[in-house]
């Protein structure tokens, strides 16, 4: 279980999180919804340890391994999807290609550098990377952004299948994504 206690964070005097509390139970799925600027991404960054809170605590169990789909894809453009994934995950090419194909990436594109990919394809590589790394907490920041409806459903099915029994915390603006998740509403 991850416990977030009385968390406060402000940027340049603007309060983003104020006395925020949350408990994330193991193996549960959570969806964070709220208006832009309400602090959802800030919360993910705090959990990842990329920024420090002004006050409050995040109590995480020993050996917590985080995986993430960031708001941006954060891929190394000159490398193939498999090389990007192998950077963070100890998996073979066969498994990587299997997941990428399941996410709807064409077989012909697999050996191309990511720089030649469309925005939607890059997003799916970022999702594959997060799913294939070793983790017990998966943080997803608007993971299905930029995907067309058909691909979106295909990707959601793969994510749900591969992250089963893991703790998932997803930031989303789409009410449809909340299905199967416990909703945490953020107010500005």
């Amino acid at each position: 279980m991850i416990e977030i206690i009385d968390l406060c964070k402000a940027f340049d005097g603007k309060v983003v999180l104020e006395h925020f509390d949350l408990q994330l139970e193991d193996g549960q799925r959570y969806a964070l919804m709220g208006t832009s600027g309400s602090g959802k991404t800030t919360l993910l960054n705090l959990i990842m340890g990329l920024i420090q809170p002004d006050s409050g605590h995040i109590i995480a169990p020993q050996g917590l391994k985080i995986s993430a789909v960031f708001q941006e894809n954060r891929l190394i453009e000159g490398m193939t999807p498999a090389a990007n994934i192998r950077l963070v995950a100890a998996v073979d090419n066969e498994r990587i290609h299997q997941v990428l194909l399941a996410l709807g990436i064409e077989e012909d594109s697999l050996n191309q550098p990511v720089s030649t990919y469309s925005g939607g394809m890059k997003r799916r590589v970022a999702i594959a990377r997060a799913l294939l790394s070793d983790y017990n907490l998966l943080l997803l920041d608007e993971p299905y952004k930029g995907l067309d409806e058909e691909t979106r459903q295909q990707v959601i099915a793969v994510v749900e299948e591969m992250s089963r029994e893991k703790t998932v915390l997803m930031v989303t603006h789409n009410p449809e994504d909340v299905r199967g998740h416990q909703l945490i509403e953020f107010a500005e």
Binding site: G49, F70, R74, L87
Partner: peptide, 16 residues
């Protein structure tokens, strides 16, 4: 630096 952060979150070893 977003890539450096990515490497940190995914616990990429120093050499890599």
């Amino acid at each position: 630096h977003k890539l450096v952060e990515m490497a940190r979150v995914f616990r990429v070893p120093l050499g890599k």
